[in-house]
Amino acid sequence: MTNSNTIIDLQNISFHYGDDYVLDDITFSIPEGAFVGLVGPNGSGKSTLIKIIFGLLKPQKGYVNIFGQRINKFHDWSKIGYVSQKANSFNSGFPASVFEVVSMGLTSKLGLFKFMKSSHRDAVHDALQLVGMNEYSSSNIGDLSGGQQQRVFIARALVSNPDILILDEPTVGVDANSTSDFYQLLGKLNRDNGITLLLVTHDIGTITDKVTHVACLNRSLHFHGETEEFEQFSDRDLSGFYGHHVHVLSHDHGHGGV
């Protein structure tokens, strides 16, 4: 991990409310080009960790570096795309077209008092093309299915040309078929477009064959490394970690395909 550029670097992060530790001494980093799965049961501190990465919460101990810069010095948030779990529970009656939703992703890149030019419009269509949703650009977002909406939110995160995409439980509320298409899309973005991905999920079973790195979080970090090593991480350890038996699917890696 030391031989490539590190995009996000967390060092000894601890976060607690009173004596109640939510995160305990978390150290891990995301190298450029990786597809990291951050897994952990509900209440394991995943969302808190994401908030710390975005600077919305300050850890009591430790620090975050983004692109080698301390988080309080970092301002170029358009380099980081974000797809939230909330995207599924937005007000579906909101009268916005798919095009308008994706152009929201340019807001901070454009900056205050700036307007969209035709090159920005092209960027919106390119992002929609990438997720296969361009033909819906003038539909209202509320008229689409959950899986389609989530693709649109990926396009919104991609439109500012970020180096890394952070996805927080993106498949909650999306049906199984769309979920598998969705993971295929993520794999494609990672392989073909070189976008670094951090996928946060409680669903450990379905992601081990898609990601290149795994980080298991339950207050502290129980495992962090490449997926191959993770598969040797015994079932017993994992059951202790989740509190019940979990079966990790074994898959053939190393052929570059999913």
Binding site: W77, S78, S84, A87, F90, A96, T107, L112
Partner: peptide, 22 residues
Amino acid sequence: TLLYKELFFLSFDEEHAVVSGI
């Protein structure tokens, strides 16, 4: 007119807008 895109983003998804640096 000047704050249109920020107002639109905040109305749609306030939390996300703030994460994006608005």
